[in-house]
């Protein structure tokens, strides 16, 4: 009998199983399994966690505990262009808060939310180690340095027709 309460598509189910298997279904590899799974699906909803728990023969609570402990894992899908604002000390000292406020205002969302059209999501991260470029904003994998609140409009405009 399967312990899974929520349905996961057959194809996805197999993908998760394969990922777990590539780590020998070892419980100690849970974090690596979750990294790979999130890489593939973009996020880790409850149903996926249930499959992982079953494959690694551990409780769903333990998997959920790990997913919610680490800020890298997310249970909500991110936008097509995830925007991350560095709020490390160097960026903070050079005005990251104002940049963040401007993003919130322009997109009309809070940190951790995604715009209604699914295009942008907003998050904060702690230090990408590019303190020389502070304040730093990441959109997807692209890095923008020395961002000012006035520059926010231009950054968003780059993704307008994408």
């Amino acid at each position: 009998m399967s312990r899974i309460k929520v349905k996961v598509k057959e194809k996805d189910l197999n993908t998760i199983k394969e990922i777990c298997k590539s780590f020998n279904n070892e419980q100690g590899e849970l974090i690596n399994v979750l990294h790979k799974t999130q890489e593939h699906f973009g996020y880790l909803p409850a149903e996926i966690q249930e499959v992982v728990a079953q494959e690694l023969e551990m409780s769903v609570a333990k998997v959920y505990g790990v997913v919610t402990f680490y800020s890298f894992f997310t249970m909500k899908p991110k936008g097509k262009f995830p925007i991350s604002i560095c709020t490390g000390t160097a960026c903070y000292v050079r005005g990251a808060e104002n940049v963040l406020a401007e993003f919130k205002r322009q997109l009309n969302i809070e940190v951790g939310e995604t715009t209604e059209d699914g295009k942008f999501s907003l998050s904060c991260l702690r230090c990408v180690g590019a303190c020389g470029l502070a304040p730093v904003v990441l959109v997807g994998e692209k890095t923008y340095g020395r961002v000012s609140p006035e520059g926010v409009k231009d950054i968003l405009a780059e993704y307008n027709d994408k």
């Binding site: 100690g28 974090i31 690596n32 979750l34 990294h35 505990g65 402990f69 680490y70």
Partner: peptide
């Protein structure tokens, strides 16, 4: 290699070890 997943406390050595074991750090 073992990968962290974004938790400052994992710089503390006992936390780091728990995280490497696949647990909460």
């Amino acid at each position: 290699l073992r990968y962290g997943a974004g938790a400052f406390v994992c710089g503390e050595e006992t936390s780091l070890i728990h995280s490497m074991e696949g647990l909460r750090g």
